[in-house]
Design a protein around this nucleic acid. Sequence first.
DNA 1: AACTTTGGCGCTCCGT
DNA 2: ACGGAGCGCCAA
Length: 779
Amino acid sequence: MDAAPPDDDALLYGHDPAERIVALHPVGPATMRLYRRRSPTEVTTEDVRVHPFFFLSDADLLRGFPRDRFQFQELAGRGFFRYVVAFPDRGAYFDALRHVERATETAKARPDEVYLPGSPEQQYLMQTGRTLFKGMAFDDLVRLQLDIEVYSPKGFPQATVPEHRIILVALSDSTGWSRLVGTPEMTEEEVLRETLDLVKERDPDVIEGHNIQSFDFPYLFERCRRHGVPVDLGRDGSPPRSYPTSMRFAERQVEFDAVEIAGRHVIDTLHQTMAFDVFKRDLPNYTLKGAARYFGFAPEGRTYVPGDQIAHVWDTDPHRLMEYAIDDATETERLARFLSGSTFYLTQMVPMPYGQAARTGPAAKVEALFVRGYLHARHSLPRADFGSQVVGGYTDVFVTGVVGPVVYADVESLYPSIMLTYDVQPKGDALGLFPRLLRRLTGLRFETKDAMREADDAHERGELDARQSAYKIVINSFYGNMGFGYALFNDFAEADRVAATGQDLLRQIMRLARAAGARVVEVDTDGVLFVPPDSVVGEAAERQFVERLSEQMPDGIRIGFDGRFQRMLSYKKKNYALLDYDGHLKFKGSSLVSRSSERFGRAFVREAIRLLLEEDVQGLHDLYLEHRRRIEAHDWQGVESFQRTETLKTSLADYEQAVAAGERTRSAAYEVAAREAARTGRAPRVGDRVSYYLGEGGGRVFEAARPARDWSPAAPDESTAFYLDRLDQLAGRFEPFFETPAQFRLVFSEEDLFGFDPSAVRLVVRERDPEEVEDDVPF
DNA sequence: AACTTTGGCGCTCCGT
DNA sequence: ACGGAGCGCCAA
């Protein structure tokens, strides 16, 4: 089977036949340039006329605006946005927006009587029903990787410091080509000119780099500006454009100036890595090397050069730095190949340029699909409802302590299944696109997964996997979109109905499992962890047990077997550890594995849990004493062992303002960042990570905190008292696992006047009866 | 300007 | 000493 997706579904893949547009960008007030791939190397251009447009609630709002400067059409249906208004050029478009703004007399820049469907490119794709990359496979793209090396003898490289300069640029592309630019004899200007010439010569569709948006590109452009080298990287010879934007990865926000290059796409593998980790929560860090090692993409025996030694290595052994740079480019290519497949396939569905699809969240993509569908049907659009969703997933824990064996069963695609089975549809969706799209996407995903299973070529399997995960992303976003306050097609009551039905189903599963003799340990949203009845022994029997549960579910709801474990340490809701049959421990929840804990603390908790699972009381006591000893002796691997690292969520100015207003209290990370900024003159950015430790001298944490890099093993000045407290605090988590608090204290203390006797200590399992909470379901 | 949701735990600060 | 509030990180 061809890895290219179907293109016969207008709703999903647009209304035009396959045409292989790889890029587009506005070139005038009323034109858009299309870049079409004709062959692996030939890209043709074509200028087309565009009509910037918006949706409007009331035609009267344009009364008095010159009639020859716009066209409008009344849309069908009783939606809120009942008119679509198109303009001959972007000047008229913006004039009209200002006109409407005045007419509505609101101070807001965007009166809510207008709906603006995205960037010019997105508008073009929406109104023509086109998509990018149609009929293409991922490998049809030419992707170029770029990695710069900067000479900065001391301190962080800064483009504005004259003596910091670009010495080396590694370039490679997806055809296997690669090149290094830079020798000790070359001037920076020569390096810059050759780099730009090579990029233009390779004519890539996509430029990729790790942190390229915030480091490589801004740095490169600034140095070019200083040398008067024109940055004509656009396919039309235009310079890059940039605009401030931000991306969110779960709780983390990253702000940067997004770079756009005419006719090409810019993909930052740092962002892709962070997006990946939102689901995995497993990466050691987000550096190129860290991510490459995690995924197994590091070239065998690759060269490593620590950042602060780049200048030194360049002076003494330039070839080593060259190997290092090309290894970086290789890793970037592998990372991008692995991480961008699903976005590539999303771009074939959603009317958005590739770079935009990589930057926006899933809700924006679902909305774009809906708006294109409604525009094509010439149907009016609903308005976003005010309010919020109330109901969420059901979570509870009934057993704490060490139990086993344990089986995890979950409802497959819980929310999508509910939405399909119970005919969920947001109230604004007059055309019924929601169920149609959901059904079609689900069908395509199953087809793709089937094809993936049958594919014998690993490469083809990879492509199909990327495609099915693109479907999955969109499918799962349908639910989130309904509960999103700014979504046109939101419906909080309907979102609540989905969540409440999910709760209902989960309680049903619990009852069935208990009735069949299982002990339910913990439930969370769509899955149940339970100890199977004594009669169920071995994987085959366990699977059969789950299958019987599944058979008792309503049609359309399937329960899957999602794992089996030797033992489990159940702590609290959403917090537990699982020991699989290979002896691997898996941790869940922030109280056991949070990255905000110090490394030594995480290691302590990990080892303690392993010992608890083995019921090794003597081992626990020894472990505790060993950690105490190390803290008292300053016996660390380095400051990394006990530093805390936090992400700055707001600017220092906003933080100070919030503190002054009494909206929040002072916090160590911001205080350390502020002191550092005052010292170095370099203001920290939102999303920056700050590492600090607690110095001796006491006081509140935010007062005693010191920058991690100031710590020296030669003169260790961390607060031993604080870290001993910290150890006890962490040990305190284990108290409920012991028969009595006194027994717990015996294990986690130094008092062994009469010697430590583990036989006096007993671990317990505490159990609560689920019936007592099984009240009526809210609906 | 852009923005998916609710549920949960632990740490820190600060007022009482 | 205790408990609420804010925040960061995590599960799904």
